[in-house]
């Protein structure tokens, strides 16, 4: 596919796997950092400073590693998609994060929040749809 023939000047088809890997690794990073934050003592109390090594705990390290991984995938997405499309497709993380919070952290999703997540998903699908149609034709 030629760069000019694709919607908004993308240089290839939709790199669904890279976009998903980027969004999923951001989600994993958020969950790990939340787990780490929940397990940390109250840093305002004097005795808790002795426990500050929990900052180097497994959850924090896992969160940082996932964040670095997401940045690598993000750069790979930027290599093939225009910034406008890449930035908005990766917004799918706003769907994955609440779902992961529900499944892994036991947080509740209110009906209003679920409606907002549904509208974000619709927006991502509207942006992705022309690329999916091009891939079907190819």
């Amino acid at each position: 596919m030629n760069a000019d023939s694709s919607p908004a000047g993308a240089s290839g088809g939709l790199p669904i796997l890279r976009v998903l890997c980027c969004a999923l690794s951001v989600t994993a990073s958020e969950v790990c950092l939340k787990k780490a934050a929940d397990g940390m003592p109250n840093l305002m109390s004097a005795s808790s400073w002795l426990e500050i090594q929990t900052l180097g705990s497994g959850w924090v390290l896992a969160g940082i590693l996932c964040y670095i991984l997401s940045f690598v995938f993000w750069l790979r997405v930027l290599q093939v998609l225009p910034l406008n499309i890449a930035f908005n497709l990766v917004n799918i993380e706003h769907i994955f994060v609440p779902l992961a919070s529900y499944f892994f952290l036991g947080e509740m999703i209110s009906p209003i929040r679920a409606a907002g997540i549904g509208i974000v998903l619709l927006g991502v699908l509207v942006i992705a749809e022309p690329y999916c149609r091009l891939e079907e034709r190819a």
């Binding site: 908004a8 406008n84 908005n88 907002g116 974000v120 619709l122 927006g123 509207v126 749809e129």
Partner: peptide, 27 residues
């Protein structure tokens, strides 16, 4: 800055995402 083309599809998707995120924020 990058002279990227904006299509009606893209504007529609962006407005839906912004609207959805505002609702998530309000919740």
């Amino acid at each position: 800055a990058l002279k990227e083309k904006m299509t009606p599809h893209l504007w529609g998707g962006i407005l839906l995402i912004v609207g959805g995120l505002l609702i998530v924020g309000a919740s």
